[in-house]
Design a protein around this nucleic acid. Structure first.
Lengths: 335, 335
DNA sequence: ATTGTTTGTTTAATCGATTAAGCATATATT
DNA sequence: AATATATGCTTAATCGATTAAACAAACAAT
């Protein structure tokens, strides 16, 4: 690898100490009273040699890396892909780069990722916390490393977070179905103790109760890494065996997609036989034979806000901020 | 931020020099003949203080960062998202982390990204090169920084690359349509001088010529950042005004998706009125009213191979390797 | 007793940039 | 003329880990 140019090379060529070069290239020539001719000469030589500062050296000395550690569930998932993209762009604006990893919803993997990223001295973290990661997150926050949780949060921890108001999202979606006359409404959710999932379920239950339909509450729990067969089993139970559900609310994108695959091969038609509300927009929703009505989280806004919160912390803010954004409801033809 | 434990802290607590601590924690206690008791003590104290090496310091000293710079067009695009995911996992296996950026198909942005990543001393690059980035890539490769191009390559540059055999992909797809009796076949492509696009067009043309259909060759070029209106204009021209095209081959995923949106609102039906071959699998393809037949690139394999090639280079390999993988053809009901 | 070898440890340089502190000159002030 | 202040630059420590080289003590060989 062709040797990179260092401050020292410039200093030698100009015939001054590295201190002066550093001052000039960091725009401190006034403050540090560097002679005009020298300033000019240093600038020239730096340009001529195409000098690029070694950020590693700078980081070691300064104690920061201008790097954000970003951990999502799976970057191959378009929802998180978009989130990462927004965070990347926003972080760049503030001079930060992003080191990232996918947790696969596995708290052990999360722990390992946090370790590597810490060793690499990231300045702060933006994390989509998986189930059971409370301890890992707590440990991190006790080390006083800036963190922002996004998309989810754990109960009762005093950590910055950016979420939508999940309760209202499903509450409104349920009411939308109720208004349309559906009564036997089921919600399809993941097994999860994390805030968003319990809120999503909570919003649905509340809306059902308000209509006096507590007996019709059906909560179908499916594990995170489910197969299409798992989904088929659950939906068969809900739609055929059990109490002939008339409408389904899905609470994550991947559950929604699995649900669509089910109806693609089912006798039952959407919305004639069953109404369908999906979660988090997807092109597939648009191309389903009856385009799917869905709840979307404002990913762009969430990403931006999370960076903003993190930067605030990095700039010394000590107060905990929990941001709640509003979801959107895209009405198409599946209900 | 709670002060991190350094080698020095351990050294002081044990009462030895940092050299010994470093030897022991790097498993060189035999080679460097460190006393047994001392080894034990150092290990104990390191565990007790929960020591984590500062990778920044280590990198500065060693001259490597164990970091790969990864630049794709847009990480929010599921195709690249998956690619990034695979590369991330594969790199981790070899002890590398990934610093990434999205170029937005913009060669200037690519240049800026390369600069930042170089300043951060990444050990090597995996890049999806955008149009017009020849100079930037060349400059990088002249600095003898290991690079692997993925998904695309520029003509006549002696750089490692991982691509599918694009020529054969469209050649076979075209023959598939010809076998089914379609004659008026058009290809929808991006304006691009990059290898894959010209090969994709080339394979199509060759197959058409072999059937003596050179007069029926229709190449419709659409710019990378196109709107659905752009697509509609092009397809209207091909299907309504011009020579009543019977079949369409799309050459990228986003072109395919735009195409699907067109047919979603069109009088013309797939495949009765027009046959449709998409590019790079997508859930949307499965949910279109007549599930789309498509060409897929083996993203996982491509990602893995690219990491393998890069690691080889990082381990000192000097020979240029150009890998060509085979595409797959998923037959559904759109032709 | 002298020299050589092995064992176990420390010293100090190094990576590249930053920056407080110190040291000359030159100029201004009394 | 003596002192103060401003100007312009250098020295050297620092961040944390690695590692060649030097060193001391114990032991073995002659």
């Amino acid at each position: 690898m062709g040797k990179r140019i260092s401050l020292k090379d410039i200093a030698e060529k100009v015939g001054v100490s590295t201190a002066l070069v550093s001052y000039v290239l960091n725009g401190k020539e006034k403050e540090k009273r560097v002679g005009k001719d020298v300033v000019k000469k240093i600038r020239e030589v730096a340009a001529e040699l195409n000098y690029r500062p070694n950020q590693i050296a700078r980081s070691l000395r300064q104690g920061w890396t201008k790097t954000i550690g970003l951990i999502v569930a799976d970057i191959a998932n378009p929802f998180f892909g978009t989130m990462v993209r927004v965070i990347e762009d926003e972080a760049n604006k503030f001079g930060y780069n992003v080191l990232f990893g996918s947790s696969d919803e596995d708290s052990e993997k999360l722990g390992a990722l946090i370790d590597t990223l810490c060793n690499r001295q990231v300045d702060g973290f933006i994390i989509v916390p998986p189930e059971g990661s409370d301890a890992a997150i707590k440990r991190l926050s006790e080390r006083e490393i800036p963190i922002v949780l996004i998309d989810r949060k754990m109960k009762g921890q005093n950590i910055d977070s950016v979420l939508i108001d999940n309760y209202t999202a499903t509450y409104e979606a349920t009411n939308y179905l109720l208004d349309k006359g559906y009564k036997r409404i089921a919600i399809v959710a993941n097994k999860s103790s994390l805030n968003p999932m319990s809120e999503r379920i909570g919003g649905y239950c509340e809306a059902m109760k308000e209509e006096g339909l507590e007996k019709e509450i059906h909560i179908e729990l499916i594990k995170y890494e489910h197969t299409r067969a798992d989904m088929a089993e659950s939906l068969d139970k809900l739609l055929l065996k059990e109490s002939k559900i008339e409408a389904l609310i899905f609470t994550t994108n991947s559950l929604s997609i699995s649900g669509l695959y089910y109806f693609r091969n089912s006798e039952l038609k959407v919305p004639e036989d069953v109404a369908f509300i999906g979660f988090d927009g997807d092109e597939a929703f648009d191309f389903f034979y009856s385009p799917i009505t869905y709840i979307v989280q404002p990913v762009e806004e969430m990403g931006k806000e999370s960076v903003r919160l993190l930067i605030d912390q990095l700039n010394g803010s000590r107060k905990t901020v929990q941001i709640r954004l509003k979801h959107s409801f895209i009405e198409q033809q599946s209900c």
